[in-house]
Design a protein around this nucleic acid. Structure first.
Lengths: 154, 154
DNA sequence: TCCATATGGTCAACGGTCTTGACCATATGG
DNA sequence: CCATATGGTCAAGACCGTTGACCATATGGA
């Protein structure tokens, strides 16, 4: 119908803003949950690093690719996480150059706290819009999202 | 059904990641579109400032609230935008303290380029998932999003 | 074996952006 | 006219990312 054509541009822009606002809210919820669990010395970007490191076998270079930053930035990020007790550097006996990153118990606990906070936010959303709409949201986002670095992008 | 309960946590986390990934993709698309239109000296955060300034009557303090940063940060951001020719500071004859921010022609053009890029991304999404799913996405996000600062949150 | 090359990782210096705390200018109400 | 609140800037510092160089280790030939 013609109204959708006429209103298309404004609708598109509004929807784009909704996507960004939803992400902002979600990040804030995760951050608040982590802080409430006592993890006050991590920021959202650290959570993305945790997610990659928790998957296992992460190196600094892989972390850099995952986050979409330079390897120096990833190395400095790893430094911070090591210094704060979330991550340890381990050697690889098959390749002397590689230092694999592993979560400490504290790192695992922080990751769980972040995931729990995210889960709480998702349950809130689901309660608000209903199971069907939430499932649709999930499948729709899954269809439009492409693999690639997941980074603090703006 | 029990499977949804069992898988709930993983589904929740995956969905949260999808939201963040979608936002990352969208921001990247807008940024790429702005650069392709010749606006190479702006970053995503500037776009959020443009959106507020374009709405009219913006002051530094209001911009700070809108972006969720300190007023000093907003003032410095305004400095950059003025220096690069996107924004002008105007005086208010009803209140000598206030300096209202207005977009220049260049600022308007950049805003339009960003909106056009966002619109293109939304049209791509709509083509991929269909009009119905896209409309559902829009209404679902509208239901879960709350008013608040729209800022580069992570 | 030895060397060229690629890769993992760190060091050093710099720049951009945000924060804190102070400060000035202007408005407003008693 | 003064106390207070608000808009805005200044100055200094911290944080985080970048570029460019550099070292260590692996790998594949000549």
């Amino acid at each position: 119908m013609s109204s959708s054509v006429v209103m298309g541009q404004r609708e598109d822009w509004d929807t784009a803003l909704l996507v960004l606002r939803a992400a902002t809210q979600l990040v804030d919820s995760i951050q608040a949950g982590a802080e409430a669990s006592g993890f006050t010395d991590v920021r959202p970007v650290h959570g993305f690093a945790f997610a990659r490191i928790a998957a296992g076998g992460a190196t600094v270079v892989e972390l850099a690719r995952h986050l979409g930053v330079t390897k120096q930035a990833a190395s400095q990020l790893a430094d911070v996480l090591v210094r704060r007790g979330y991550v340890t550097r381990t050697t690889d006996h098959r390749d002397g150059r590689i230092r694999r990153l592993r979560l400490t118990a504290r790192g695992v606990a922080c990751t769980r706290a972040a995931e729990e906070a995210a889960g709480q936010a998702m349950r809130d959303w689901r309660l608000r819009v209903g199971d069907a709409a939430w499932g649709d949201l999930r499948s729709t986002l899954g269809a439009v999202c492409e693999p690639g670095p997941l980074r603090p992008a703006w």
